[in-house]
Design a protein around this nucleic acid. Structure first.
Lengths: 209, 209
DNA sequence: GTTTAAATCAAACATTTGTTTAAATTTGCC
DNA sequence: GGCAAATTTAAACAAATGTTTGATTTAAAC
C-alpha cells in the first residue's frame, strides 16, 4: 500500500497520540489538530478511525520483514552470532519505533477479536518460526543445547525490551542519567539491553545442567 | 480502605472489563450491567469512573506489601534462595491476578501524568528497593557477583511474566496444550516460567566473566 | 479558459459518553 | 409503626464522540 504525504502525516501524528493516550483515549479531533488537517480528512483518506489504526500497522509492519530471512540463510555466521544479531536487530527496531512499540504492547493486552489482533498474531507467528529455525539449526550444529522453549525465550526478549521502553524514565531517574541528551541516553539503553539479553540468551542456549 | 460487598462486586466486574477492553474502551454502563447494579451506583460509591480505577488499584495493591519484607529479613535463607522465592512469589501474583496484571501492564504504557501513574511508580520503587537490598546482601556474602543492573533485571522479571500472561493463548496453541484444563495449563505455565526465570537469574547473578 | 476530479472545509448528524438529579425504596433504630 | 439515613432507581443533562454532508476551493487535463 502506498500512502501520500498527507496520509503519512496523519498516521505519524496518530501514532504519537495513540502511544501516549491509547487508541480509545485519542479522539479523531485530537489527531486532526495535531496533524493540522481538517477533521473530515481522516474519514476521507482512511474511512474510519479503526481503519486508520490498521493502516498504521500496515505502514509500520512493512519495513520489518525482509532483513531477517536473508540473515538466517547466511552460511558464514555461527548460530550464536545470528542470535546476537537478532537481539540487536530487535532492540534497534523497538528503540527506533518506540511509539509504535508502545501501541503494539498495549494492543496485545486487549481483546483478541479485533482486526489488529490478527495482524499482531501474524507478526508473532512469523518471528516465532524464524527463531525456531535458527535454534534448530544451532542444535543440529551442536552449538545450542537440546531442550529450549522458544515461546518462553521470545517472552523474555520481547518482554524485557518492551518493559525497558515503557519504563525508561524510571531507569533514567534511578541511574542519575538526566545529564545525558536523549540521544546519548537511548544509546546507553541500547547497549545495556544488548549486553543483558545476550548474556541471558547465552545462558539459556548453551549452559547444560 | 474498606469496601462493602456491592463495591467489591463493581470493582471486580470493572477489573474484568478494563482488562479486556481497556479503561477508555469500557463505559460505566458496561460496568453497571456486568455488575448488575444501577448506573448511578458507580458515581454514588466511587465518585467517578477515574476514582473507581484508583479504588481498584488500592484494593488490589493492599494484598501485596507485607510478605516480601519479612522474607527478606529472614536470616536462615541464602540470598539465592530468597531470590528464587521472590521469583515464585511474583509469578504467583501475576498468574492469580491476571486481569489486574493486564490493566497494570497497559496503564504503565500510558501517559505519566495520571493519578494511576503515581501509584504504579510507588509500587515499582518499593519493589526496586527491596530487590536492591536483597542483591546487596548477596553481594556482601559473596553469593552474587559485583556489577548487577537491578532495573534491567526487573525489566526481565516483569516483562517476561507479563508477556507470558498476555500471550498465553499463543503459547497454548503452539505447544498443543488445548487438552489441558485451564487450571492444569496455568500450573504448567507457572512451572515453566519459574524454571526459566530462575535459570536466567542464576546466570545473571553468579556467572562471572 | 473550460471541464472534471480530487481535496478541503465548516457545519450538522446521531450516538455514546460520564455524571447528576430528584423521586422512590429499603434499611436500621427508637 | 414511625423516623431518618442509606440505598436504589429511571430520567435527564451537557459534553464529547465518530462519521457524513454538501458546498467550496484547488489541481490537473484537455
Amino acid at each position: 500500500m502506498e500512502y501520500n504525504d498527507k496520509q503519512v502525516q496523519i498516521m505519524e501524528m496518530a501514532e504519537i497520540l495513540f502511544a501516549e493516550k491509547g487508541f480509545n483515549g485519542t479522539s479523531v479531533r485530537d489527531i486532526a489538530e495535531k496533524a493540522s488537517v481538517n477533521l473530515a480528512m481522516i474519514s476521507y483518506y482512511f474511512g474510519s478511525k479503526d481503519k486508520l489504526l490498521e493502516a498504521l500497522f500496515s505502514y509500520r509492519g512493512e519495513s520489518i520483514k525482509l532483513k531477517l530471512e536473508s540473515m538466517i540463510e547466511n552460511k558464514e555466521l555461527g548460530s550464536m552470532e545470528k542470535m546476537n544479531w537478532l537481539i540487536d536487530h530487535y532492540i534497534d527496531k523497538v528503540m527506533s519505533q518506540q511509539c509504535f512499540s508502545r501501541i503494539m504492547a498495549r494492543e496485545q493486552v486487549m481483546n483478541h477479536t479485533s482486526a489488529i489482533a490478527g495482524l499482531i498474531f501474524q507478526m508473532k507467528k512469523r518471528n516465532q518460526e524464524l527463531i525456531s529455525k535458527l535454534i534448530h539449526e544451532g542444535q543440529k550444529k551442536g552449538e545450542f543445547k537440546k531442550s529450549i522453549d522458544v515461546p518462553l525465550m521470545m517472552a523474555t526478549l520481547i518482554g524485557t525490551a518492551n518493559s525497558m521502553v515503557t519504563t525508561q524514565h524510571y531507569y533514567r531517574e534511578i541511574n542519575n542519567l538526566q545529564s545525558l541528551t536523549d540521544e546519548e541516553f537511548h544509546k546507553h539503553i541500547r547497549k545495556k539491553l544488548s549486553q543483558h539479553l545476550k548474556k541471558i540468551f547465552k545462558a539459556i542456549l548453551t549452559n547444560e545442567e
